[in-house]
């Protein structure tokens, strides 16, 4: 059997994320050749959910904590973009205490802001929820998600339950990125950066602590490392990443609504991570792609698509313990992979 060191990613773990990003990067030209620009829309959705699922996987896969809060954090990012654009479009300044802000549709400003705000929300909710574990953690993150959801519904000024249309032209550092292709590449760049940065994080001392604490908390504690602060940091980082993804989704579809924040959406994000494979950084990219494409294909066949989708998830989880990432490994490495 091949030497296996959990500290050290295998060759496929190094190559797969690069391959995944390269494949995605090829979508716009291929869509151009096929004359099917809709493919770019689909690929954009894959990229955005891949970012969110990777961010969530830091908590679910690496820290071993299943959170149902993350659609809420995703939505916080979306609303930052939506609200900033609303103020810019309507020419009405947003009063933040003594400061008045004219708002903007420039993602160079709203993306960092979305990450920041989602990170703050993750920090506040994480401080409380990380004192629990297991089913209690699940329930408390669900409760926080519902609070964010109803918080968004209560934003009557910004569309309330109906959601908020983004009418401004989305730009990045002054450049128009509202067209499909430039927006797709912007999102893909952020995905690549996320994969690269989180790749360093999970391989660092910090990442080792997260993984070890997920398996044996007591051992990590007697080693002189209290896991709580590390988990909280991971929770905040994953919140920032989900916030960025949410901001991108809102910008891409020029719409944000409380529906994106419901705990069912959180469940979808967990499904993407599990479907792709929790134990690798790139698994959630595969999971997000599979989720978005299956949703699209199956729902074009029948309105009861979720029935078939559920069956597929059951089969994947039962047969491939490492999710779809395992399938990729099997296909590339032959029989001795696992």
């Amino acid at each position: 059997m091949a030497e296996f060191d959990p500290h050290r990613p295998s060759t496929i773990d190094r190559v797969a994320p690069i391959a995944a990003i390269a494949i995605l990067a090829a979508v716009p030209p291929v869509a151009g050749l096929l004359g099917d620009p809709f493919l770019i829309k689909v690929a954009t959705r894959v990229v955005v959910f891949a970012i969110a699922a990777i961010g969530l996987n830091l908590v679910v896969g690496y820290a071993g904590l299943v959170s149902l809060l993350h659609a809420g954090l995703f939505g916080v990012g979306g609303y930052v973009v939506g609200v900033a654009a609303w103020h810019e479009f309507n020419g009405e300044a947003l009063g933040l205490g003594p400061v008045a802000w004219a708002g903007t549709a420039d993602l160079a400003i709203t993306l960092p802001l979305a990450g920041l705000l989602a990170g703050i929300v993750a920090l506040v909710t994480g401080v409380v929820s990380l004192r629990t574990s297991g089913p209690y953690f699940l329930m408390i993150t669900l409760a926080f998600d519902q609070m964010l959801y109803y918080g968004a519904v209560a934003l009557q000024k910004y569309g309330g339950e109906d959601g908020l249309q983004i009418l401004s032209t989305i730009t990045f550092a002054g450049r128009d990125v509202s067209a499909r292709t430039p927006f797709f590449y912007l999102a893909l760049t952020i995905l690549a950066a996320t994969v690269f940065l989180l790749g360093r994080v999970v391989g660092s001392r910090f990442g080792v602590v997260l993984r070890a604490a997920a398996e044996n908390e007591r051992r990590v504690t007697v080693t002189g490392i209290p896991p709580y602060a590390y988990r909280l940091t991971a929770f905040v980082v994953s919140g920032v990443v989900c916030g960025l993804a949410g901001a991108l989704l809102a910008s891409g579809q020029q719409f944000v609504s409380p529906a994106d924040m419901s705990w069912v959406r959180s469940g979808d994000l967990v499904v993407m991570a599990v479907l792709g494979g929790l134990s690798t950084l790139w698994g959630p990219i595969v999971g997000a792609a599979a989720f978005v494409v299956l949703e699209l294909v199956l729902s074009s066949w029948t309105q009861y698509w979720q029935l078939a989708f559920g069956a597929i998830i059951v089969v994947v989880v039962l047969t491939l313990r490492g999710g779809l990432a395992d399938l990729v490994k099997l296909a590339t490495q032959g029989r001795d992979a696992r």
Binding site: S204, F206, V208
Partner: peptide
């Protein structure tokens, strides 16, 4: 974890905090 990785974790614990995000462990 491998045997080595387990012991590396213990060494890590003895070297102060582990809020190190960049260098590969």
């Amino acid at each position: 974890f491998t045997a080595l990785a387990n012991v590396m974790l213990a060494v890590q614990g003895g070297q102060g905090h582990s809020f190190r995000f960049w260098k590969r462990a």
